[in-house]
Structure formats: C-alpha cells, structure tokens
C-alpha cells in the first residue's frame, strides 16, 4: 500500500520501483557490465602492441602518446555521434568509442610498467639466453603487471561511468534508464540507475583490486623498496595523474 504510493508520489527512494522493474534493471545492468567488460578487454589487447611500439623509440612514442591523448579530449557525445555513420545504432559503436577512450590510460600505464623494469633484470635474462619474446612474456610483462593492472582499474571505473553516455544511441546500459526518466521526471528511476552505476564501478574496482593482489603477491611484501625504486625512473606516476593534457597537435 505504502509502496504503491511512492510511485504515485514520485519519491526519490522507492522500493516498489526496484521490485516492480527488477527485470528492466537487471537487463540494463547486464548490458552495462558486458559493454564495459568488452571495451576494457579490447582496449587492453590493443594497448599492449601500441605500448610495445611506443617504446621502440621517440619516433613511435610521440605519435602513439599524442594520438591517444588527443582521443581523450574528444567529447564523448561527439565521439558516439561521429561513429554513427560507421556503425549505425549498435553496441559496437559504443564499445568502439569506449575502447578509444580506454587506450589513453592503458597505453600510458603499460608503457610506465615496461619502463620501470630494471635494466639489470633485462640484462640478466638476456645473459641466461632469453630471446626477445620470452623476455617479454616471462620477465617484462610480469614485472609491468602492477602498473598495467592499476591502469585497468582506472580504465574500468571511468568506462563504467562513460557507458551511460551510450544511451544517446540506445546502448548505454543503465544510462538507457536515466535518459527517458529525465524527460518524464521519474525521480526513483534516475536515482536508482545512478546509484547502481556508481555501485557497479566500485564493485568492479574492488574485484580488480582482488585480481591485482592475487596476480602480484610480491608487491605487498616488498612495498617499501619498490616505492623507493619507483621514484628514480619517474614513470609519470600512472596511478595518480592518469590521463592529463591534450598536449599534442
């Protein structure tokens, strides 16, 4: 009885809304999760070769960093609108846009991680007869993992937030519930979807933190010396500064 009233009264918090539209909310959340997940995974797959390319020398690093930074300054609304002629109203449009944004963070952090691998370690591996491929897979990537995973966390959290803008083409996960509710002033729907969106980002961040701890157990044991070492090569403090200025072009 009281529940019925909160929908009629257009209250901010309405449990009846959550129970009566649970299917709608679940569908939107599922869409949000898979769009975000696919985007970050594809972003990761694309960013690694780019980071490897960028470290071959200044000639490659400048365009790769410049381009990925420039992409980040494109307004998300414009990005999704401009991709429309290429993809039509589809989820791949949103995923493509989100992948392009995630590159800024992922490429930077992958580069910072690879740069932070001590030269002595590389030398030692080469001395033991490691070829370039094995050196990368068995020595450099594992050592770059903490910075890389820090980047994945930042990219995931911002991708969860950015996915909402995908509602402009009807593929924005929880954003799809927010957009129409603004027009009809449906308070409970706007608030519930927004809160779910933030919760999703926080849960994803915590899950990834768990993954990070599982995959890189050594970072906890030797925290102090690692932090001290990190001061010297200055890999642009990936975790804090994140994506910064559009310096290019």
């Amino acid at each position: 009885m009281a529940g019925q009233n909160c929908l009629v009264a257009n209250d901010w918090i309405c449990w009846d809304y959550v129970t009566s539209r649970s299917q709608e909310l679940t569908d939107a959340t599922v869409q949000h999760v898979w769009i975000t997940g696919v985007s970050v995974l594809v972003g990761l797959v694309v960013s690694l070769p780019l980071a490897l390319l960028a470290r071959r020398g200044r000639r490659w690093a400048a365009p790769v960093l410049g381009l990925t930074t420039l992409l980040y300054t494109v307004p998300s609304l414009a990005m999704f609108s401009l991709l429309l002629p290429l993809f039509g109203l589809s989820a791949s449009l949103v995923v493509t846009g989100l992948v392009l944004y995630s590159l800024t963070i992922l490429v930077r952090n992958a580069m910072a991680g690879l740069e932070a691998v001590p030269e002595e370690v590389r030398e030692a591996a080469r001395g033991m007869g490691y070829g370039p491929g094995r050196l990368l897979w068995q020595v450099e990537l594992p050592l770059a993992l903490p910075a890389l995973l820090a980047g994945v966390r930042i990219a995931t959290v911002s991708t969860v937030a950015l996915t909402t803008v995908g509602s402009i083409v009807g593929k924005g996960g929880l954003g799809n519930l927010i957009a129409p509710a603004v027009n009809s002033s449906f308070k409970a729907q706007v608030l519930t979807a927004s809160v779910l969106c933030v919760l999703l980002a926080l849960v994803a961040d915590l899950l990834l933190l768990g993954v990070q701890r599982l995959l890189t157990p050594w970072t906890r044991a030797t925290r102090a010396p690692r932090a001290a070492r990190r001061m010297k090569p200055v890999p642009a403090e990936p975790a804090v500064s994140g994506p910064t200025t559009a310096k290019g072009a």
């Binding site: 959290v157 937030a161 803008v165 509602s167 954003g175 927010i178 509710a181 603004v182 927004s194």
Partner: peptide
C-alpha cells in the same frame, strides 16, 4: 569522482 557519471549527476539535478 571518476566513478560518478556526469550524465547521472546532471540527470539527478534535472529531476530535482
């Protein structure tokens, strides 16, 4: 701050 979508914040303000 990174986890809160600007769109959601704006939407909340627009129904307030």
């Amino acid at each position: 701050g990174r986890a809160v979508p600007v769109f959601a914040v704006l939407a909340l303000f627009m129904v307030s």
